[in-house]
């Protein structure tokens, strides 16, 4: 029996509902959902609900950003975290916050993070050259990521603040602990704008199944539409970074999960990656809290623990699969 794209979409939503029930019930306090007392109401409204929504929105943003980047670069290994977009966003955010140039919930913060992400993306594309060769993109991404990571470390090392490294780890490893509605407020507009930009550029992403040379003859305004996709990726990643820090691999895994289910068409990969990303991050957050002791592990660590073996498996798989060449 073959399941249609719509069928998988509904299945993702059903699974997300089941995992959401689990996620909302995780925590030190037991909550009686049918009869909330004042304390339970505060726990649900101020801690669990914003965290749950933040997980869903972040998963969707990262899934969409990863899929869009893979489709745009015609490269199944492209991922915002892997190719330095997230690191550059984080570098700008940490710099501005650390030196006190912007407040934690300033509206300038996501804008600055978008600029940082875009700068990272452009740097990678320039370093990789016109061919968008898969290995050159990864190498350029590693260079940009390392550069951003070192710069972030240097800034914080030189700063006369003993809590610098704690601050640094929160941004580079990504954490969903102690998040509030304000964090969600930073992410949701980015998710909305990014999704609208991807809706506008969706046909280009389909056409990029073929070479850029062919796509240039298919009636696209290539430069403006390609910039639209790059902006969408930067906006989605920036929203995620300013709300929870860097969470890698969700953007890589979500589109591959969709492809593993037999959905190869760019439109289906793009839009199904949103619920797939939400589902992955939800499962990762549940796992994070299950394996954490008294002190909660950053979710970025769990994402990397799951993501790195899968990335290695994908790299090996490439040698065997003709079509990814």
């Amino acid at each position: 029996m073959t399941v249609t794209a719509r069928g998988w979409g509904w299945l993702f939503i059903l699974l997300a509902v089941i995992l959401s029930g689990w996620h909302l019930n995780q925590g030190a306090a037991t909550v009686n959902w049918l009869d909330l007392n004042d304390l339970q109401y505060t726990i649900v409204m101020d801690i669990r609900l914003p965290r749950w929504l933040l997980v869903l929105a972040n998963g969707m943003a990262l899934g969409l950003a990863g899929a869009a980047l893979q489709l745009l670069l015609r490269n199944p290994l492209a991922e915002p975290g892997l190719i330095g977009v997230s690191s550059m966003s984080a570098l700008v955010t940490v710099t501005l916050l650390y030196f006190g140039w912007l407040a934690a919930f300033s509206w300038w913060l996501p804008l600055a993070a978008v600029a940082g992400g875009l700068a990272g993306l452009l740097l990678v594309v320039l370093l990789a050259g016109r061919q968008h060769d898969i290995y050159r993109i990864i190498l350029a991404g590693v260079a940009v990521s390392s550069l951003a990571g070192s710069a972030m470390g240097l800034i914080l090392y030189l700063a006369p603040n003993p809590f610098a490294f704690q601050e640094w780890s929160q941004w580079t490893l990504g954490s969903l602990a102690n998040r509030s509605w304000s964090h969600l407020g930073l992410l949701l507009p980015c998710l909305l704008i990014g999704t609208l930009l991807l809706w506008w550029t969706r046909t280009l992403l389909t056409a990029l199944t073929l070479s850029e040379q062919t796509v240039a003859t298919l009636g696209f305004r290539l430069v403006s539409q390609r910039n639209g996709v790059l902006l969408a990726v930067a906006v989605l990643v920036a929203g995620s970074v300013v709300s929870v820090g860097i969470i890698g691999f969700v953007g890589l895994l979500a589109p591959h999960l969709v492809r593993l289910l037999g959905q190869e068409h760019p439109q289906r990969v793009l839009w199904l990656s949103a619920p797939a990303g939400a589902l992955l991050l939800l499962a990762m957050d549940i796992a994070t809290r299950l394996i954490s002791g008294a002190r909660e592990l950053p979710i970025g660590i769990v994402a990397a623990l799951v993501g790195v073996p899968l990335l290695v498996a994908l790299l090996f798989h490439r040698y065997q699969r003709r079509f990814y060449e």
Partner: peptide, 27 residues
């Protein structure tokens, strides 16, 4: 008005034949 078929074209994603042909009608 015109269509162009380059010498080396390797579709990146494993889509169906009908979906590939449909790309020619996107605009």
């Amino acid at each position: 008005v015109m269509a162009y078929l380059p010498q080396y074209e390797q579709p990146q994603w494993d889509i169906k034949v009908r979906e590939l042909v449909d790309i020619g009608l996107l605009h």
